[in-house]
Nucleic acid binder design. Structure first.
Lengths: 337, 337
DNA sequence: ATGAAAGCGCTAACAA
DNA sequence: TTGTTAGCGCTTTCAT
């Protein structure tokens, strides 16, 4: 299997099989209108030469690029140190398996990058796009959709866009189930630490908390905005303790902040879950590693990635946008509540 | 800026500029042998039409694919929940910035994937490959190198391969500096928890520990093999305490295991760093989040990714493999030592 | 069921 | 300095 001067072409396969290029092409494309022996000869020849279709030539003809992009809308440190990110990518890779498309990875850091990317997409060099970690008011998805390119977002967009598919987790329901758990543990004085409220996930978790607390006939004991960071969680917990010293439970909008809250509670001499029960969100690796281990609301993150990939491919194939999906969450019981 | 029926071609740009296709091509390729007014006309036309080069057509001519792959050699859960992974990817993205190549992401799960990938590469569909997370004896890098494809590995390969570039961190030196730190803190009874010894990083860290302890005229108080997991670290710590109850310092080959060790030490009633000082490796987000925060040996992980990308591009451009690089580590002082 | 031929948009060799 | 021309390897009519 020495590397020949050049990669084998359809022409060489056809020659070896003793048929025309057109017939060889038909076989390899899976056409049924080909004679049995011609088919076998072509297949054997292709195998023999370990033929691989030249994508460039194919693209030129079909006007498809056979590649899709996995695009991160920001280059903030926090996002990349989030283990979730890698899992979404893995899920997406799974989700497109068997479709014979390339997964192109890109980060849109500066405005220049966004412009270049948009032109690139409009130039027809990408059959579809998965978009992650955009700010709510980001114009990019709308522009791409307007250009007729299939787009799927991870997370509900801030403002609804017609024809834009997305995959989200049930943030509202997850928050509600966290409240239910806390109440079932006998807690009555519940507070929450929210995420940044320019993100729909944070908004929904906050709203779910609020609604479900009232559902139980209770009054929320305070909500402090956090920023999804460890230090932010710690500061928020401090503020919460100052405001409502008698709280006995906290729902924290992500695990990293929950960990920060744990540290603050420890410093304040409150035992967890004895004095204060804590429930996080995400089920990040941090949650299991914390001490006490954090009870949390798990997002099915790999599944979300898979769905992202699957829906994009479906959207491309069918030529019309797929409806949004919202995947269910699940409580993971550990030590903190 | 309505999406035309078709993307603008070089032909249309040339027409608008009033020159031939060749001249338009020259301008866009940055050739200097073009008259000033022709150049300006072309540039204006390209801008006007927001022209984007058709990569398929270009590839067909140049026999370059203008894309490189970022390939993960395994699909193990652990690898993907490791925050490092995302940072390497980001680094690689940085490293190739400005080269106008696509970064194609791929995971090689099963053997079928590997075969398909190898054929794909041999087919000339990738100008170069970055390889991560391979087992030492993986035949893939050798085969790709033999096929004449530029390849760069993250981490020193198990068996040296001629013409194979790699980017590593100074595991040996990092381990030595961890020992120095512990000794400078007055510790004399040092033990270590190693990583899986089929990985060169684990081997080097272990060797560095051993050598530097002896350098200080001390005798290592035991080494237990771990598996880079939280539970593995915990079990290893348990074994270590049973074997050498009087140890006063532990060098742990990664932060996740160090966290497990911390948990075990807490359960055993040993204070950290009072009774036992602990130094980890990686500077993962976990290290800062732990309680006590883990003093650790930082790998410049984003920089490694950047180097990976840069060296691959250099190797492609120059047509010859780049020598390996080993980036320095740095001690991050926190609470555990 | 099969082949011949056209042409996708670009680059590169050659002419002028 | 510029234009003309010839393909790159594939898919896709249109004949046969």
């Amino acid at each position: 299997m020495v590397r020949a001067g050049r990669a084998p072409t359809l022409e060489s396969v056809a020659a070896l099989a003793g048929v025309s290029r057109a017939t060889a092409g038909r076989v390899l494309a899976g056409s049924t209108t080909v004679g049995e022996q011609a088919r076998e000869a072509v297949l054997r020849a292709a195998e023999e030469l370990s033929y691989v279709t030249n994508r460039a030539a194919r693209s030129l003809m079909t006007r498809r690029s056979d590649s899709i992009a996995f695009v991160v809308g920001e280059s903030e440190e926090r996002f990349f140190s989030d283990p979730h990110f890698a899992l979404v990518l893995r899920g997406a890779h799974n989700g497109i398996a068997g479709h014979d498309v390339q997964l192109v990875f890109s980060i849109l850091g500066r405005d220049a990058d966004r412009d270049r990317f948009e032109r690139f997409v409009r130039g027809g060099h990408l059959d579809g796009v998965m978009l992650l970690s955009l700010h709510g008011d980001d114009p990019l998805p709308l522009r791409l959709v307007a250009a007729g390119v299939p787009v799927v977002l991870l997370g509900r967009p801030f403002t609804p866009i017609d024809g834009l598919g997305y995959v989200d987790t049930d943030n509202l329901g997850g928050a509600r189930s966290a409240v239910d758990l806390l109440v079932s543990r006998g807690r009555t004085r519940l507070a929450t630490i929210t995420g940044p409220l320019d993100m729909t996930a944070a908004i929904d978790r906050s709203a779910g908390f609020e609604a479900q607390v009232r559902e139980h006939g209770l009054r929320p004991r305070g909500a402090v905005d956090g920023d999804f960071s460890l230090e932010g969680g710690r500061a928020a917990m401090r503020a919460l303790l100052a405001r409502s010293p008698d709280l006995d439970a906290v729902f924290v909008a992500n695990d990293l902040m929950a960990l920060g809250a744990l540290h603050e509670l420890a410093d304040a001499g409150r035992s967890v879950p004895g004095d204060v029960a804590v429930v996080g969100f995400d089920d990040s690796p941090l949650a299991a590693a914390a001490h006490p281990a954090i009870t949390t609301v798990r997002q099915p993150i790999v599944a979300m990635g898979e769905e992202l990939g699957r829906r994009l491919m479906a959207g491309i194939k069918q030529g019309e946008p797929q409806p949004p999906v919202v995947l269910p969450t699940e409580i993971v019981l550990r030590e903190s509540a």
